[in-house]
Design a protein around this nucleic acid. Structure first.
Length: 583
RNA sequence: GGUCCCGUAGCUCAGUUGGAUAGAGCAGCUGACUUCUAAUCAGCAGGUCCCAGGUUCGAGCCCUGGCGGGAUCACCA
């Protein structure tokens, strides 16, 4: 539920409210506020109020109501003029008021510290659940970008949010990797890029195991794998030592990527730490009669909820993914006293979470209804889904390297000698972050992304770098033209339609972020930032800031530009995308 | 078969909770840098919003039924 934080809409709602009262009609201010929208284009108006809902009360046709209503609204500090257009009342606003209520608060930061939403439970967002002993691929990057952006947006909207991650450091995938290293690998142990090497071992292992299914070798393999798993569980033996060492290699890779992306977690939960306790918990469910024994396994029959049977303890006594999530869900609420728990996990786990939440509910864990699986669709390649198991993945490392190289070669090489080499390297990384994160988050979470490398490396048009470029461009203008510090401007001089279009767009920032927070959809923000940048670039290309008829107008345009830059920077920050000072 | 998601321009996607003439990018074509950053901008072209009903002042959006694609459904995670 959004608070009424938009001063412009509030001002318009007041004027409409007064005009309606004069005609003897009373509406709640919320209703009016919520109905105020944008005019279709800047020639028709800046904001619009539709009169359809008034038809019943007035017993008149909406166009007639719009006409009478607009006649009742007097221009004031905010409202420059009012026009009825069919069933709509269209408002033109004064640049002076827009400057005071929008641009100035943006420039001094007040604008970004408003409370946007009413219900702000303390929540935990869990995201990034990579498996050790596998390579991180671009699919993991979507999860990382989405979860990180979501947390920042939720915090901005006023929620207290704790971030957590849940890496999978135990399980059969680990055994397959260690199995291959020990029994089949002939390469020397690596000195560098150990995480990536491990990922290859996993792929080779799972391919070999798949190959040998149905062969005499199968039984031997099975025995060897089970031996490995036993050692890991007993926490002793050569495989346990190898596990400890190689596990760290993967963690080092995770940390490299997290550092690069600027992501941190308040809490790391490990599958290995909840494994044993989760099985113990499942046994209590059996005792309580919530779980039953079936076909040698122990689980909960959820068929009456259309969720099938949820196995919690395998016939060999081991727990499963669902078992661990049962334990983890409870720990989260205990450890941090949260009121809401969000899981950013790909859509293929939907049924898994439905089962987990339902079992918790049946077990009497009331917070289960505050657990929410934020399912997003996965990233796939043009020729089908990615699979570490099969080895057809694009590693995050490879994407980053290729993109950094491309950015330097195509755009930054021209500055070589002029800029320090370190800055070229840094800016290339900033741009790469912009391209990758923006690309991952711009698509609606429940639509899949078909990853085509060449499209991603081409960063023209709608992209993170477009917005970063606009920021750097404004920065350059300010550097060159802002000879003395401006702290105020005569906003009333900004009468060009494109200048007003910018102000109107700026005013919408908080509405968009609030919407993104409500819907858990950061793509509303990416879209907004792109449109804001686009609006500015349109203005920039048709109006000179440097050459104006007066110094006052130049000052106003400079401050307007600066407000755009601040807004772009703050918006990108919510996506954890940095901006370069020049590019 | 059950459940969930998707279907909008050649391709990739928006569409602010039901509002005015459905918008961007890529690809294609035409223009704009001795000027404040051309990683940009302006313009052209491109549409049965999967189909059929329904709800109402109004539907790309909501409801019902189809069609097409994807995911998932007992000891992997």
């Amino acid at each position: 539920m959004q608070l009424q934080h938009d001063d412009i809409k509030l001002g318009l709602a007041q004027a409409i409210d007064q005009a309606l009262r004069k005609q003897g009609v009373e509406l709640s201010s919320e209703t009016i506020y919520d109905q105020i929208g944008k005019a279709p284009n800047i020639e028709m108006g800046h904001f619009a109020y539709p009169c359809f809902d008034l038809a019943k009360q007035f017993r008149k046709a909406p166009p007639l109501i719009a006409k009478e209503l607009s006649a009742q609204i007097e221009p004031d500090r905010l409202i420059a003029s009012v026009e009825a257009a069919g069933p709509y009342v269209n408002f033109f606003v004064n640049p002076q008021a827009m400057g005071d209520l929008v641009a100035l608060p943006i420039l001094d930061g007040r604008f970004f510290r408003k409370d946007l939403t009413r219900d702000t439970p303390k929540m935990m967002v869990e995201y990034s659940q990579p498996n050790t002993h596998k390579e991180l691929h671009v699919g993991h990057m979507r999860n990382l970008s989405l979860g990180d952006a979501l947390i920042r947006i939720l915090q901005y909207a006023g929620n207290e949010v704790i971030s957590s991650t849940f890496p999978g450091d135990v399980g059969t995938h680990v055994a397959k990797c260690l199995w291959y290293i020990k029994y089949h690998n002939t390469d020397p142990m690596p000195d560098t890029e150990k995480g990536a090497w491990l990922g290859r071992m996993y792929t080779l292992g799972s391919l070999k195991l798949e190959d040998e299914l149905g062969s005499p070798q199968e039984a031997i393999n099975r025995q060897q794998l089970s031996g490995i798993l036993s050692q890991l569980e007993a926490e002793e033996g050569e495989f346990f030592d190898l596990w400890k060492e190689t596990r760290q290699w993967s963690i080092d890779l995770f940390n490299w990527v997290y550092d690069w992306a600027g992501v941190t977690f308040d809490k790391w939960y490990w599958e290995s730490e909840v494994d044993v306790p989760s099985v113990a918990y499942a046994k209590t469910l059996l005792q309580r009669g919530i779980a039953i024994e079936s076909q040698g396994a122990i689980g909960v029959d959820l068929s009456e909820y259309n969720l099938d049977f949820c196995v919690l303890i395998k016939s060999d006594g081991h727990g499963l993914y669902a078992t661990k999530d049962l334990e983890l869900a409870r720990r989260k609420f205990e450890d941090f006293h949260i009121e809401r728990s969000i899981y950013v996990v790909d859509v293929r786990q939907s049924q898994h979470f439905q089962q987990v939440f339902k079992v918790l509910e049946l077990a009497g864990f009331e917070e289960a209804e505050q657990c929410y699986h934020l399912a997003y669709n996965f990233v796939e390649l043009p020729d089908g889904p990615m699979s570490s198991r099969k080895g057809n993945i694009i590693a995050i490392m490879d994407l980053i390297r290729q993109m950094v190289d491309r950015v330097i070669r195509e755009y930054l090489e021209q500055y070589r000698g002029d800029w320090p080499d370190a800055e070229i390297e840094e800016v290339a990384n900033i741009i790469t972050k912009g391209a990758i994160k923006y690309g991952m988050v711009r698509v609606d979470p429940n639509k899949k992304i078909v990853f085509e490398l060449e499209n991603w490396l081409n960063i023209r048009g709608e992209s993170g770098p477009y917005i970063q470029y606009t920021y750097a461009r404004i920065n350059s203008i300010l550097r060159n033209l802002n000879d003395h510090d401006l702290d105020s401007a005569d906003w009333s001089l900004l009468t060009e339609p494109l200048e007003l279009a910018i102000l109107v767009k700026l005013a919408d920032f908080n509405n968009v972020v609030a919407l993104a927070a409500e819907q858990y959809k950061p793509n509303h923000l990416t879209r907004y930032l792109y449109e804001l940048a686009q609006t500015f670039n349109g203005f920039y290309n048709s109006h000179s800031i440097k050459h104006t008829e007066s110094a006052a107008l130049k000052g106003a345009r400079l401050l307007l530009s600066k407000a755009v830059a601040v807004c772009l920077r703050e918006g990108l920050a919510l996506l954890n995308i940095p901006v370069p000072e020049r590019m």
